[in-house]
Amino acid sequence: MARHVILQFRPEKSRLRESLARLRAHLEALRPQAPEVVVLPETALTGYFLQGGVRELALTRFELLELLSQVHKELAWEGLLDVVVGFYERDEGAYYNSAAYLELPHRIVHVHRKVFLPTYGVFDEERYLARGRRVEAFNTRFGRAAILICEDFWHSITGAIAALDGAEVIYVPAASPARGFQGERPENVERWRTLARAVAAEHGLYVVLASLVGFEAGKGMSGGSLVVGPEGRLLAEAPLFEEAALLFTLDRERIPPVRYDSPLLSDLEAALPLLLPDLERVLAKEVP
């Protein structure tokens, strides 16, 4: 059992210090709720659309840890605090759209680098960023987890790899500009809800989506963060377009009975080796 909060956050655009001050104020407000894991959106401390400004605002993972440890210290937070946070990462000469799982105040548990960089329409990530190459689960003090960033999660294969690697929860920091206003919710928000439920139900795990809010030069980040349980049920959902803190307790004990009753993950584990030759074939573009 781990007490989580999804912090649906609005950064101070391109202003790291101001965003950290805002984060500190929100954590102070949440202190009575005693969260153990705080999940923040993609690019939470700078905003998403920076273009060439990435070069000026990216942090190394060690700088990120130092900045957030400082927040932990200033708050005089009692004990450890785990944080999942999206940030622009600098590593030697390369820049990534990354998300870290930190155990504050001292430990970098894992850093995931976004693999699928959207470069179409309003998105232009590959122009400014290098591509991550790994999807892997990792151990936290509360169990095994994986991180997928935004479009990473829109491809079913990444969730499958995370699940096969033992993830009980997939954290998904996202930044999704609202578009398609025909229905009850924007189309992109509907798509997130459908995907999150499908991936959670297929693999019998939790999906925790933390979605950015705030306008960035006309693009309105949609929010609508959510948590889906291993049965594929939507457990809680944050409002659209505005900051919110969504509290929930993640109960790993639900996972074994759900997977026992619906053993799709073990079916995948058994059948995937049979399909690998076909995967290799289609990737090689061979005609059967």
Partner: peptide
């Protein structure tokens, strides 16, 4: 070449 969004203000 020099590309910054209009709301970029570090």
């Amino acid at each position: 070449f020099y590309l910054r969004p209009l709301d970029y203000r570090p």
